[in-house]
């Protein structure tokens, strides 16, 4: 389980460290793709609850992360997150979002299991999480 966690964490870190276009828009894009996969399963409220919990946990390290409910419109769902990340240096924004994603996926994995979480992430991000090489599947 730990190795899977580490693998998932590594992939998130790698996704967040890829220059040059990994700005706030790119960070939010990851969230949008993930939300698209998760919301049909656990509903808007379930996702919001997970997200709020992750924000709360990550805020102890990055107080800049905005608390508060997600916007109801899917287009602006992560507007608050985007604003928070835009107010930081690229490095800080990357680290903050990285921690937020790890926290979110950790919580999700604790709820629905590692395997299902990885499958969802595969679908959301087009990432192969089935082996240790963790190749990115071209779209």
């Amino acid at each position: 389980m730990e190795s899977h966690n580490l693998l998932r964490h590594q992939i998130i870190k790698r996704l967040m460290s890829q220059p040059p276009d990994r700005d706030a828009d790119a960070a939010v894009h990851l969230w949008k793709r993930m939300a698209t996969q998760i919301i049909p399963i656990i509903g808007e409220d379930g996702f919001s609850s997970l997200y709020a919990r992750s924000i709360f946990l990550a805020q102890s390290t990055f107080p800049c992360l905005a608390a508060g409910p997600l916007a109801p419109q899917s287009d602006h769902r992560f507007a608050g997150l985007k604003t928070s990340l835009e107010g930081q240096t690229p490095a800080q924004a990357s680290e903050a979002n990285c921690l937020l994603l790890i926290t979110f996926t950790n919580t999700l994995a604790a709820l629905i299991g590692e395997q299902l979480t990885n499958r969802i992430l595969q679908l959301a991000w087009g990432i192969d999480l089935s082996n240790s090489t963790a190749k990115e599947i071209p779209e």
Binding site: P40, I41, I42, G43, E44, D45, G46, F47, S49, L111
Partner: peptide, 9 residues
């Protein structure tokens, strides 16, 4: 969906 949401919450 609602049931899942409630479980998560």
């Amino acid at each position: 969906q609602q049931a899942n949401a409630q479980l998560v919450i």
